[in-house]
């Protein structure tokens, strides 16, 4: 625990202006149930963060608070200089800048791949249609499926769908990307194609927060790994230290469980 706070203060001193997400003493309840307890997290521009922890520990809830798919009840969340309150203008502003990729893709089944990608640029950013389509094709090429642009999501494989979902988020040119277990609904052979896209994305300097149990991915791209359990951040560290030298008992147990799998 002491270790983690140290890193936090260190960063705060050096990267004061560079902080894009600041979560400060945040709590959340579902009715009586205290899901998130005193979450403190600062993310600097361009940082890659991997969040892991056992099921039900509140990982999804935490990153969903960042674009206010969930409301927190106590503490502050400031994203890119905008505080998340009930102010709808602020929420819209944050959502424009934050892209999100879901475990179950959540593509729109009644729209083609291309329409999925151009929808938000056209209706939220008010980009002209042709320009939006051009951008969408660029990103579809980046995720290596330009040839599927006119198909419907239901006609693609899981891995392809998830890559479309990534492209769809990127089309809004977000500064921050949130990933909630993007590979855990995929068959093993498709996981790699999605991870490859994410690794490439990571090398381009976008800020990423990623809930995942892919420890290989964490080791290659993460600047910091965060371990959550019971609604708290138990431990955070650089990947090397985190995996080789976990401080906390619960972390050790968790790591032994998933590495033995």
């Amino acid at each position: 625990m002491s270790n983690s706070t140290q890193i936090g203060t260190e960063q705060m001193n050096t990267d004061q202006d560079n902080i894009v997400i600041r979560i400060n003493q945040m709590h959340k309840w579902y009715g009586q149930f205290h899901v998130l307890k005193d979450i403190n997290l600062d993310v600097t521009r361009g940082e890659k963060i991997v969040i892991c922890g056992p099921s039900g520990s509140g990982k999804s809830t935490m990153i969903r608070c960042i674009n206010r798919l969930e409301e927190h009840q106590k503490g502050d969340i400031i994203v890119d200089g905008t505080e998340l309150t009930n102010d709808l203008k602020n929420i819209e502003a944050v959502r424009r800048e934050v892209g999100m990729v879901f475990q179950h893709f959540n593509l729109f089944p009644h729209l083609t791949v291309l329409e999925n990608c151009t929808l938000a640029p056209i209706w939220v950013r008010k980009t002209p249609r042709l320009e939006a389509e051009e951008i969408a094709m660029q990103y579809l090429e980046r995720v290596k499926i330009p040839d599927q642009a006119n198909k419907f999501p239901g006609q693609l494989s899981g891995g392809q769908q998830q890559r479309v979902a990534i492209a769809r988020s990127l089309c809004m040119k977000p500064r921050i990307m949130l990933f909630d277990e993007p590979t855990s609904a995929l068959d093993p052979e498709m996981i790699k194609e999605v991870l490859d896209v994410m690794i490439e994305l990571a090398s381009e300097g976008i800020t990423m927060l990623c809930v995942t149990h892919e420890m290989g991915f964490a080791k290659t791209v993460a600047d910091r790994v965060i371990f959550m359990d019971g609604g708290e951040i138990i431990e955070e560290n650089v990947p090397q230290e985190f995996f080789d030298n976990p401080q906390h008992e619960r972390t050790k147990l968790f790591l032994s469980q998933i590495l033995n799998h």
Partner: peptide, 20 residues
């Protein structure tokens, strides 16, 4: 998930209803 995805994109209520 459909509602969440359109929220996460920043679509407002009416566009989200009409388009998604």
């Amino acid at each position: 998930g459909q509602f969440e995805a359109s929220d996460a994109m920043g679509l407002k209520y009416w566009p989200s209803m009409r388009l998604i």
